[in-house]
Design a protein around this nucleic acid. Structure first.
Length: 285
DNA sequence: CCGTTAACCTGAGAGC
DNA sequence: TGCTCTCAGGTTAACG
């Protein structure tokens, strides 16, 4: 489901709801997520207090008072839901006044006055425990600089594009090189930068290089301001939908007219590495 | 080292 | 109503 902006919206919601709260009990209904939920997961976090909630690219990190970290990745379909213990607090739930999904509620965190529930139909998400700061740092060495950070700049991008033969779209999706981008936002960034997603990385010129950096930041930050993108059923943890989907210029716009002023092109859907790729062949060269 | 592909899963929606 | 097919905000092991 989520790319950097959606994960950031979830982080903000968690920060409002569970910061400085104690987990009273954990119930694991299904350990078979992308990584197996450890047998002692329930015991380790019982009575632990969540000191803060961080985000790094698409990962959420719960920082606990017992110096442990819990890294959460939502995969494609992972969602977190609030649920009051009594029905009168159901307005805190993910679906507003409605009830939780019936299936795939894999992990339930019980707090004093509410529950936090992890739902994930496809089970591509995971929960990973990191025991100390050094494990934490080691875990994130696999992740490149965040696309919205200062470390992702012209000079850095130039360096990673040079001598690489793979296409620019796959390169930007490679989390080891630059992190936080996913299929939607890469499509949007390359459209704004007027670059064909099939273009070989080493052929990206200096002007295009600059535009990729510029639009990465503009688009991600705007998406955060809009509350993320709500395609299908993504909502923030308190039930509000994001609105950035109405700002899409190419993603999911196959056969529609190019949204760029004065461009007569039509958006086409093509496949790159098994993923939908949307291109205006007139303005993306 | 690099780049590509298949695989991991379930559910929604389209077409017949 | 139901079958079959395609597709989905991600990642990574395995292969050449």
């Amino acid at each position: 489901m989520p790319e950097l902006p959606e994960v950031e919206i979830v982080r903000q919601s968690l920060n409002r709801q569970v910061k400085n709260r104690k987990i009273i009990k954990i119930q694991v209904n299904n350990r078979n997520l992308r990584l197996k939920v450890p047998k002692d997961f329930e015991q380790i976090f019982k009575n632990a207090v969540i000191e803060k909630i961080q985000r790094k690219s698409k990962y959420l990190i719960l920082v606990f008072n017992n110096h442990l970290y819990c890294v959460i990745h939502l995969g494609m379909s992972g969602t977190l839901h609030f649920m009051g213990l009594k029905k009168k607090i159901t307005n805190l739930s993910f679906y507003g006044s409605q009830s939780l999904p019936k299936k795939h509620n894999h992990i339930i965190f019980r707090f004093k006055n509410f529950k936090l529930i992890y739902n994930d139909p496809r089970r591509f998400g995971f929960f990973k425990i990191l025991n100390n700061k050094s494990d934490y740092l080691r875990f994130f060495t696999r992740i490149g600089p965040e696309a919205i950070s200062k470390d992702f700049n012209k000079k850095y991008l130039r360096k990673i594009l040079k001598n690489r033969t793979k296409n620019i779209k796959n390169l930007l999706l490679d989390q080891k090189l630059v992190s936080g981008l996913g299929n939607i936002y890469v499509n949007e960034i390359l459209f704004q930068a007027k670059i064909n997603p099939f273009k070989k990385s080493y052929l990206i010129n200096l002007d295009e290089n600059k535009k990729i950096v510029k639009y990465s930041k503009i688009i991600l930050n705007k998406a955060i301001r809009f509350g993320g993108s709500s395609i299908r059923d993504f909502k923030g943890i308190t039930g509000k939908s994001g609105n950035f989907q109405s700002e899409f210029k190419v993603y999911d716009r196959a056969k529609k007219k190019c949204s760029r002023n004065k461009c007569s092109g039509q958006i086409r859907r093509k496949i790159i590495s098994n993923r939908s790729t949307f291109i205006c062949s007139v303005c993306q060269k």
